[in-house]
Design a protein around this nucleic acid. Structure first.
Length: 888
DNA sequence: CTATGTAAACAAC
DNA sequence: GTTGTTTACATAG
């Protein structure tokens, strides 16, 4: 819009390549060397190309001595006139490309083919010219260890003629086909790591955001999927006055880097997820590059993966439209002139447009209703005087109305009904054609833990005092619910689930930015520890009692769900008693135990005969484990030895990879290069995660020894673990041993040592509690202590200094923020109550970074992210932002 | 962990 | 029986 209004010229458009994420083909299967040399092991995303995807590379079994640098190939991307309905496409001039005008499709195809060949041959050549002496075979190890044998080589190219942000999209991955150590042919997908996560809404990203994001590693995640729910950006979280600025071109001209081993036998194919498969025989010739020549706009299909093929064939057989129910409902409602529809009309519309549903299982209507209720964007409009109730779309959503036409593209290409009944072949190309590109989602920010005040049942006041009884806390703190309130439905509650698979308080939820305002794990652990460490107790069980299994027989009465932590806790403490009570109250409801036995295939499969409660001993052990590192992490100074940066500690990386490496975590990836070193906060996070990994292993071990069996919904077992983490027995044992050793021998000792030293030093109890002692302003006290401890003069100043290269004098910060006069105190009572901290209380020697520190402080979600409301209505949202501390 | 699909209990009409 | 809400579980990513 901005562009058009300025130039008053209708922009020429080029069609962006639009891709859809379909599957994670191989979890943690391949390493990708990013431009900063950092190796990521994140999931490999496989994409489905829209109009054109290019690049096929084929490695020939041939070594050369040539070590020439990798050549860069440029592919001029298709330029064509599109309708003004796609004004987001860049103009010819803006992109600076010299793309030719395409006259017809044949010419276009030829051009693309030619360009592909250019790219392919160049890449091929560069591969051939790679380092010579390596004797590694790419498949000497199956994933995940496979990547450890990789060297990397960069294959830069980009496509011109596209909006910059799309320039590095074209190839999402390669398929490496080679020989394993047994000389058997094998296939490996290698993802291409792009820098930006394409997600979210278009209009609200400022130039600054791009600036900020440019040095942060982003993974290419997603291009808009038809029907995908575009989450709205709350107006309050937008930067006012910032329109869409074109990102600087150089932010997006990142080369792609693919980890691969030179001098080995492999083919590299651009690969894709299924669109329309051509079941032509895969050309397995290792020296054949002619397949490129067969590629056309509608005929780009290198080697479909077996699994993808299955998935797609399944969907295709079902003739099911590739839209979610949510999208379908939006289509329907948007199709009506009144912008509203009754449920029945929605049914009818969907059946009319998608005949599949006429003969589908009747359950789809249930799902429609479910979706209507589930998603906030659907609002029921009750008309007075009439019984009719209409479903409308929430008007305050700043999203483009989703219509079927908009996702179908031109009608002639939309989808062709096959002769068979309702089988429909979807041309995903044209589905994608109508899609509007979307801009990157801003990265999550670093965050810190904050205490959550507890509700005193008697006074009904929030307090931080440690003498609040656990029961008080439990009684007052509701269990997160999928339907806690309309604003915090499913997603947020899932995100905030309190209890992990392992049966105790969830580790992860504490550390996700979006749950920062609801972090009471610290409080919880602390209280549990204080109150129950030496008493008879069982661990809390699942978030809610197991009330249904996979197959529920009809007409079973339902047990009351557990509403609060108190319920949950009591339920677990008095498990057997409650079972008896529940049985008498709900005779037709199966007992938890019987459900576990009869309704959980996984339990049966793993021969978990009966659920047993955890022993007090094991519980205490876990509590202790969980509590100690959690707290000491907060209090400790930097410790680069025990939590060395994975980059500088290959052994550590290897050790952790099988368990979900810290460096694959979002927190880690989204940190900029400099920040990615071990900072106190990152160390804290990673340590806790590491500890949780240990705890889970403990659980697994205990389960194997039949010591305990938690009646949780998802039993933790070796098989599942392996499936998830894709590690074999060796890895599992290896990791277990390594982690345990690392944790027990190193970390714990160091913890203890450190805590003892600190204890002497500060003359208080050995481990500073995350719970603030009572004071006038406990929230601030804690906050201050936390920051103070995080940035405290370290035991090893050299490390600390080396990890924080930039420091600004505190005075500068203070001055700067005074000048801004940017006091933006939220309505949150807690925020308001926080007094200005006393700078002198901070370490005089080491001031925090201005940037990272402000990021630490600014945990409110920030612009462009979705700040979810507090899950728990009676717990104030402790979101704090730097602006709250301007006087700081 | 998130998003989605599915089944089903249940209430109100 | 329909509509709407909510809980639960499964699966894919």
């Amino acid at each position: 819009k901005e562009r058009n209004s300025k130039s008053n010229v209708k922009p020429k458009a080029c069609r962006p390549i639009i891709l859809q994420r379909k599957h994670t083909v191989l979890n943690n299967s391949a390493s990708v060397k990013q431009s900063d040399g950092y190796i990521s092991r994140r999931k490999s995303n496989v994409f489905e190309e829209g109009a054109n995807t290019i690049c096929g590379i084929e490695q020939i079994n041939q070594n050369t001595n040539n070590n020439a640098s990798v050549k860069q190939s440029i592919v001029k991307y298709e330029q064509s006139e599109l309708s003004a309905s796609q004004p987001w496409c860049p103009t010819h001039n803006e992109t600076g490309s010299q793309a030719p005008q395409i006259k017809n499709e044949t010419e276009h195809i030829n051009l693309i083919q030619e360009q592909c060949n250019v790219v392919a041959s160049s890449c091929k050549q560069s591969i051939l010219q790679g380092p010579q002496n390596s004797t590694n075979n790419i498949m000497t190890k199956q994933e995940p260890g496979f990547s450890n044998n990789f060297s990397t080589q960069t294959l830069p190219f980009h496509i011109q003629g596209m909006k910059p942000m799309f320039q590095n999209i074209p190839v999402q991955g390669f398929q490496l086909r080679g020989l394993n150590s047994n000389n058997q042919s094998a296939v490996q997908e290698v993802p291409v790591q792009n820098h930006f996560q394409m997600h979210g809404n278009t209009e609200h990203y400022s130039y600054q955001h791009y600036e900020a994001a440019s040095d942060i590693q982003h993974s290419y995640n997603n291009i808009q999927v038809p029907g995908y729910y575009q989450q709205p950006i709350q107006p309050s979280s937008m930067h006012s006055g910032h329109l869409v600025a074109q990102p600087r071109q150089d932010h997006f001209q990142n080369t792609m880097s693919v980890g691969m081993t030179p001098n080995t036998h492999y083919q590299v194919h651009g690969f894709r997820t299924p669109g329309k498969f051509h079941d032509q025989a895969v050309d397995d010739s290792l020296t054949n590059i002619t397949w490129l020549g067969r590629m056309g706009v509608n005929n780009f299909m290198p080697v479909p993966l077996e699994r993808e093929r299955k998935v797609f064939e399944r969907d295709e057989k079902r003739g099911r439209p590739p839209y979610s129910y949510m999208a379908l409902i939006q289509f329907a409602i948007n199709s009506s002139s009144a912008g509203r529809m009754t449920l029945r009309q929605i049914y009818q519309w969907i059946e009319e447009k998608f005949p599949y549903f006429i003969s589908a299982k009747p359950g789809w209507k249930n799902s429609i209703r479910h979706n209507l209720s589930l998603h906030d964007i659907f609002v029921r409009q009750v008309t007075t005087g009439s019984k009719a109730s209409y479903w409308t779309l929430r008007s305050d959503l700043n999203i483009r109305p989703l219509t079927l036409d908009s996702v179908r593209g031109t009608s002639q290409h939309s989808f062709q009904e096959s002769p068979n009944n309702h089988e429909t072949t979807w041309s995903l190309q044209t589905v994608a054609q109508g899609q509007k590109p979307i801009l990157p989602r801003l990265p999550p920010r670093p965050y810190i833990l904050l205490p959550v005040p507890l509700i005193n049942n008697e006074t009904n006041e929030k307090e931080f005092s440690p003498n609040v009884q656990t029961s008080t806390f439990f009684n007052s703190t509701p269990i997160s619910s999928q339907y806690g309130d309309r604003e915090n439905r499913r997603s947020s509650s899932q995100e905030c689930s309190l209890l992990a698979d392992s049966g105790f308080v969830s580790d992860i939820s504490v550390f996700t930015p979006s749950t920062h305002g609801r972090n009471f794990l610290g409080c919880l652990i602390s209280r549990l520890e204080r109150q129950f460490l030496n008493s008879d107790c069982s661990p809390m069980l699942s978030q809610t009692r197991v009330t249904s299994g996979t197959k529920r027989s009809t007409k079973k009465s339902r047990k009351e769900p557990l509403k609060t932590l108190h319920d949950s806790f009591n339920s677990s403490v008095n498990f057997e008693k409650n079972e008896v009570a529940a049985q008498s109250k709900y005779p037709s409801s199966p007992s938890s135990a019987s459900q576990l036995l009869h309704c959980k295939p996984s339990y049966k499969k793993d021969k978990h005969k009966s659920p047993k409660l955890m022993t007090e001993e094991s519980f205490n052990e876990i509590l202790e484990d969980l509590g100690s590192p959690f707290k000491s992490c907060l209090a400790r100074g930097p410790d680069v030895d025990s939590m060395m940066s994975p980059r500088s500690d290959p052994a550590s990386r290897k050790r952790r990879c099988s368990w979900g490496s810290p460096e694959s975590s979002k927190e880690f990836q989204h940190r900029s290069k400099t920040e990615r070193e071990v900072t106190p906060s990152s160390r804290c996070i990673r340590r806790v995660k590491s500890c949780v990994g240990d705890l889970r292993q403990n659980y697994a071990d205990m389960q194997q020894k039949n010591l305990t069996q938690l009646p949780t919904s998802t039993p933790l077992n070796k098989n599942k673990w392996q499936k998830t983490k894709r590690c074999n027995d060796m890895d599992l044992e290896d990791s277990k041993e390594n982690m345990l050793q690392c944790f027990q021998n190193t970390t714990k000792q160091r913890d203890d040592q450190w805590c003892n030293d600190k204890s002497d030093e500060i003359g208080e109890h050995s481990i500073p509690s995350p719970i603030p002692s009572s004071s006038k302003n406990p929230a601030f006290d804690f906050f201050h202590d936390l920051i103070g401890s995080v940035f405290k003069t370290p035991d090893k100043p050299s490390h600390f200094e080396s990890l924080t290269p930039e420091r600004v004098p505190l005075a500068d910060i203070t001055h700067q923020h005074k000048d801004t006069n940017d006091i933006n105190v939220e309505s949150s009572a807690v925020s308001e109550s926080i007094a200005p901290p006393n700078p002198s209380l901070l370490s005089p020697k080491y001031e925090p970074l201005d940037t990272s520190f402000s990021k630490l402080l600014d945990i409110s979600g920030g612009s462009g992210t979705f700040s979810r409301h507090n899950q728990f209505s009676d717990v104030p949202d402790l979101s704090l932002s730097w602006s709250n501390f301007s006087h700081f």
